[in-house]
């Protein structure tokens, strides 16, 4: 019984002492952790909104959308932050999101024209390796090499799904041939990004699927310049992370204010060194020192959001067939 009493006590004790209206923002887990952008963004926004910003973190982007679908129109959330371009079509299909008027001077490799979602950061998928490695210049060269790679499962991870779309966007109907070539390079497929990156750091593979911005973490946070991202000449697939307002929100004006805030300098300057992605709008002070060392792909690949569901199912079937042999 002592535990129950203790549990009850902690619960009442941590109930937030709300000042002003409360804005509930659902996001993925790593956004709210103390190393993520969440704490700094919460403090900066609360300083100007006279409100209580409450981040609720859960799994990754896919888990976020699944949660919204479960809750439906009854959701407590006012804003959802952390879906990506692969999930936009499915998110719109739920009918839970409201259009927005928020626009900004986006510095994305593509023009952004979406009525509902606002991009806040983005990155290129890339294979990360030790700086000393002679990296292949494209998927074909990688497939022909003896290099070992770790990737994520597209059924359980957003980067894994990104790789699927990358190969499909670059090679179309020839994607199965590319996967056949890669099959013997793949050491293993993991559930999520963390496991794959951990295996790479343990020396289990020569390269790991991550982002072109990953070396920036090692350089800036650890002063370690031993990691590089391989530049592929067929272009790199992009991940653009977005936020959107729910139609059922009871804090419409506050939600708009938060979406404005996310593309303002106060938020954009925090993202590069907490979320380790490119900001959607270049901050006044420019990109943090160290980002200029990152490789920049010549060609950005992206499947239009509306085409993702159909292509995704076809690409998954091809992937499963090629790697199950």
């Amino acid at each position: 019984m002592k535990y129950l009493a203790f549990a009850a006590a902690t619960m009442t004790a941590t109930t937030a002492l709300a000042e002003g209206p409360e804005l509930v923002v659902y996001t993925y887990d790593s956004f709210v952790s103390e190393w993520g952008p969440g704490p700094a963004i919460e403090a900066a926004f609360e300083a100007e909104c006279a409100c209580d910003l409450n981040f609720v973190g859960m799994g990754d982007g896919a888990a976020l959308l699944a949660r919204l679908r479960l809750e439906g129109a009854r959701s407590d959330a006012d804003v959802v932050l952390g879906l990506d371009t692969s999930l936009i079509a499915a998110a719109k299909e739920t009918g839970l999101f409201a259009p927005t008027a928020v626009r900004a001077d986006y510095r994305l490799p593509i023009t952004w024209e979406d009525e509902v979602f606002v991009p806040y950061d983005w990155g290129y998928f890339a294979f990360v390796h030790d700086a000393g490695l002679e990296a292949p210049a494209n998927f074909k060269a990688l497939g022909e090499s003896d290099l070992k790679i770790v990737i994520q499962d597209p059924r359980s991870s957003t980067p894994g799904l990104g790789l699927l779309m990358w190969v499909k966007a670059a090679y179309g109907d020839d994607a199965p041939v590319i996967w056949d070539g890669l099959a013997d390079n793949i050491v293993t497929v993991t559930k999520g990004w963390s496991e794959a990156y951990g295996l790479f750091l343990e020396g289990e593979a020569d390269m790991v699927l991550s982002y072109t911005t990953s070396p920036a973490y090692h350089l800036i946070a650890e002063e370690d310049d031993s990691k590089s991202a391989a530049l592929f000449d067929e272009g790199h697939y992009m991940q653009i992370e977005v936020l959107g307002k729910l139609a059922g929100t009871d804090q419409g004006a506050l939600a708009d204010q938060f979406m404005e805030f996310m593309v303002s300098d106060a938020a954009q300057s925090v993202l590069p060194t907490t979320n380790w992605m490119y900001p959607a709008v270049i901050p006044d002070a420019g990109l943090p020192k160290g980002f200029e060392t990152l490789v920049v792909p010549e060609k950005a690949l992206l499947v239009p959001a509306a085409d993702v569901p159909a292509i995704r199912d076809e690409a998954l079937a091809e992937w499963l067939t090629a790697l199950s042999r």
Binding site: A62, A66, W319, L320, S324
Partner: peptide, 27 residues
């Protein structure tokens, strides 16, 4: 996660992974 990571790829798909896929990928 054990089966997937050490199984070396989608050959090692378990029922639990299929459940995860049904919930989060296909809803």
């Amino acid at each position: 996660a054990v089966a997937l990571t050490l199984g070396g790829g989608p050959r090692a798909t378990t029922v639990e992974l299929a459940i995860y896929q049904a919930f989060q990928f296909d809803f």
